[in-house]
Design a protein around this nucleic acid. Sequence first.
DNA 1: GTCACGAACTAGAGCGCTCTAGTCACCATC
DNA 2: GATGGTGACTAGAGCGCTCTAGTTCGTGAC
Lengths: 339, 339
Amino acid sequence: MEHVAARAGVSRALVSIVFRGVAGASEATRERVLAAARELDYRPDTRASRLGSSRTRTLGVTFAVGHAFHGDLLESLYTHADAAAYELVLSGVTPSRSEAAAVETLLAERCEGIILLGSSQETAQLERLAAHLPVVSVLRPVPGGGVGVVRTDDAAGLRLSVEHLRGLGHRRVALLDGGRTAGAAERRRGYRTAMRRSPALTEMILPGGVTELEGAEAARAFLRLGARERPTAVAAFNDRCAIGFVDVVRQAGLHVPGDVSVVGFDDITEAGYPHVALTTVRQDAERLGAETVRTLADRLDGGSPDGGSGTTPPAPVVIEPEMVVRASTAPATRRGVRS
Amino acid sequence: MEHVAARAGVSRALVSIVFRGVAGASEATRERVLAAARELDYRPDTRASRLGSSRTRTLGVTFAVGHAFHGDLLESLYTHADAAAYELVLSGVTPSRSEAAAVETLLAERCEGIILLGSSQETAQLERLAAHLPVVSVLRPVPGGGVGVVRTDDAAGLRLSVEHLRGLGHRRVALLDGGRTAGAAERRRGYRTAMRRSPALTEMILPGGVTELEGAEAARAFLRLGARERPTAVAAFNDRCAIGFVDVVRQAGLHVPGDVSVVGFDDITEAGYPHVALTTVRQDAERLGAETVRTLADRLDGGSPDGGSGTTPPAPVVIEPEMVVRASTAPATRRGVRS
DNA sequence: GTCACGAACTAGAGCGCTCTAGTCACCATC
DNA sequence: GATGGTGACTAGAGCGCTCTAGTTCGTGAC
């Protein structure tokens, strides 16, 4: 910076002004400084600038590395953080690197807010964290109100699923349950609500899960059922689970959707591939990301002058999901009852 | 820090000593300082500590968000960076955030070295970057020597594939090509070498790609072939491509491995699921990560006293892949020639 | 008793920025 | 010609650490 200032024949403060893009430098000087910087291959040190300023304008994100939907969310977060003049600091969660450890590094970076994708931490722990700085839990609801929440209306999603299947004439509609995963309880609730709305429907909950593996296991349980009790349609916890289910069912010689209709959840990229063509409930990653950044930016920049650890708990943002009908669901037929 | 020092009744410098874990504090004081820090919920500011010290001990990583194998690599990188007392700074690449932009933020963070997972930047650009600081390209070979390389022996991997299939009696073995992806050229070369080694083998290269989508398309091309020319075995660019291929082939009523044997590449988690049981060539994510960190740490901490932009170009590290035989390959039979 | 030495601890400059409180020149106003 | 205002620029303290060059003290050797 020193060198750039010297080369451009100005003070260091002026260089700072130019690089922060604030008012206080003439157009001519601005160009001269930028030219000098280019020649010297100078680039402001983000560590130092964050240290110097009162605000770091930095948002920390924990995410599961290699998780496809988290990837979609990150893309949206990057875009909207950029638009709101925030920087993102990523901290990955892996089998050997806990979410708590990931959060710890974000705190040490002095992020102004923290975004947790699909958090698996206990509510109490989240509340404790949220007492220090604004926290948004994405995908996973957190009761209490201290923690910001941006999520899809999971219950509504499963209601959509069930309605869709009921509309196709299905009566025995099973849920491949997500267990203790973020959002699973809500989806179970949505499933039950929708099923009980119509007395013709028969509930059945099979243990499912997050990955194809668990979908495949659920399929084996499904295949063990007798013809009379076997569901004619299945709503899966998510797309990957649905895909595993379909795979095994097909390998057993049954047809999807001929013998059993299947609905997923998420609408991951793979669900839209022609050879998969999974009917599913779409979570809008783009909007989830946008709302997350907005929630945080509002609190940080905006209204509450206490800098975010404010008394005004942000209202949870719940985004409506959307049914995406593809080729894995079809009207119920006699064949659905075939062995 | 001020407050912690006051509470523990020591100087700020002592607090620094304790938190850096260096010698120069008695056990009693150390405990007193840590206790004070705990009570005040103090945590050293990483930005400030990096600023203060001459070294940042920070490694920057660019990766594709949501990419499963990159996730595996990150896990290994986290572990080994930690062991070598380095911190990782992640910078995600998305469709709307280029690799160049990702690198730019890493440079502004003053990372000491840069790790690029499956880089798609041009060689010239990488060379330019490597002139400034140590760079390791993981998965993708870079000619020239200025850029460090840690990768799997892709060519050997495809030779293993072909050998395995030849050993099962297959003669018409096709490659589902990876196009311009990192490593694809090497794998193509390995395939050709192995095929030409034995005159009985008939080469055939079908356009493939990185995702299930492209594997599925390749399968459609495969199905259009007449019975006499149709390969009895297929070596795919990677597991996802293989999985898409298998999926479509099965939906068309053919059997894997009965009608066609399929080999993948990578050994992603999914390949090991019982209902997938894909025979594949394993890339050792754990070792790739370990070698990457070692390469960088050696250069940064070790021998060359110039701090890494040294004259000694690091030799590329090439890791041998390993054949993992599962249920998607079987001996060639008459049925392999069936329409 | 004194000297050397090491272990425990401290003072204070410095890292590369930001940002407040200026200075200075220039112009318009009355 | 004094006054005020404005845009362009600068000086210098401060952000929260690290790290070098100390100081202080207790101990063992002679």
